[in-house]
Design a protein around this nucleic acid. Structure first.
Lengths: 176, 176
DNA sequence: TTTTAATGTAATATT
DNA sequence: AATATTACATTAAT
């Protein structure tokens, strides 16, 4: 089991061997290995990232000099960082969408234990979730009322026509 | 010490549920068990791998559908596979290099037993190895002659100058 | 212990 | 610059 150490501060150095070329001299392949940024570098980079996704060339230059990295490396770091946060953002969106789509039907019937024992004002099948905003609740309620009206209207006027036409209705805030 | 995580690991979830995808697993903490590919899947994957180790997106997509895997899973499989064969290839190279470097000095003085009792045409300290080609033999011989000449020249003309200048000489075929 | 599915990231290429 | 994808290092399950 390799105990991970991130102390990559040490560059590999050619070990000074005997005068005659030894086996290692030939066999040791000095491939540059993969470069990993140091914690300090990470710190400064992400600190700056909070201020701006896309630092200017000049800013990159200064940062690179300070961190002893090339401009290109800094640029790549920012590119990958942007990609990462975008990816996370997208996935979060996906997740939120799922939650928002399901929050009505999430039964939560099992009052399992110990969770918010205070008398909730919410209906028992409407669970609280920080991603579900009041506007979402209202939107869903509106959609429900709309659908209910539709059903009522259908009941009142007997339709001789085929009812297979599903009442497709453009819904407000189709969950983004 | 700020435990800075380059790759913290320890977050083994997110199972990317496959086609069966019931939506209940939104809040459910799924089993972080590792998925193993089936023999059938392995068969098809490695069969395709022989044709191309870097399948296109489309090809991956079709394969994924056929195997009931996600595109990502197929991609990861190919990545790991490539890494594996590269690793093997490198190690083989290393081994060959070592053999080539050592084939002169591999003494084999001890006529231990039972190995190729036929009267060999090779000098007794030059063992045959399929990786050592004639050109390698000739190269080493040439290098040896060169070095011998060098030594002879030194012996003939007595050098009053400091001899610390190691006679570094560019060698032909420095073993790849 | 070895093999391998999976993750994280530096780097490259395409558009 | 966004996006996709690769190699490489590493983690963790088998």
């Amino acid at each position: 089991m390799t105990s991970f150490n991130h102390s990559n501060g040490l560059k590999r150095q050619k070990k000074l061997s005997s005068v005659v070329g030894s086996e290692e001299d030939i066999l040791m392949d000095n491939k540059p290995k993969r470069k990993r940024i140091s914690p300090d570098q990470f710190c400064l980079l992400s600190e700056l990232f909070q201020q701006t996704d896309t630092p200017s060339h000049e800013l990159r230059e200064r940062l690179a000099k300070k961190l002893e990295m090339t401009n290109r490396e800094v640029q790549v770091w920012f590119q990958n960082r942007r990609a990462k946060v975008n990816r996370a953002r997208l996935q979060e969106q996906e997740h939120v969408k799922k939650v928002k789509f399901n929050y009505w039907s999430s039964s939560s019937s099992s009052s399992s234990s110990s969770c918010s024992s205070s008398p909730s004002l919410l209906p028992h099948d409407l669970v609280f979730h920080p991603d579900v905003t009041p506007i979402d609740i209202l939107a869903t309620a509106a959609a429900y009322v709309q659908q209910w009206d539709e059903q009522e209207r259908k009941k009142q006027v007997v339709q001789p026509t085929i009812t297979t036409t599903t009442t497709k209705r453009k819904s407000w805030r189709p969950w983004l």
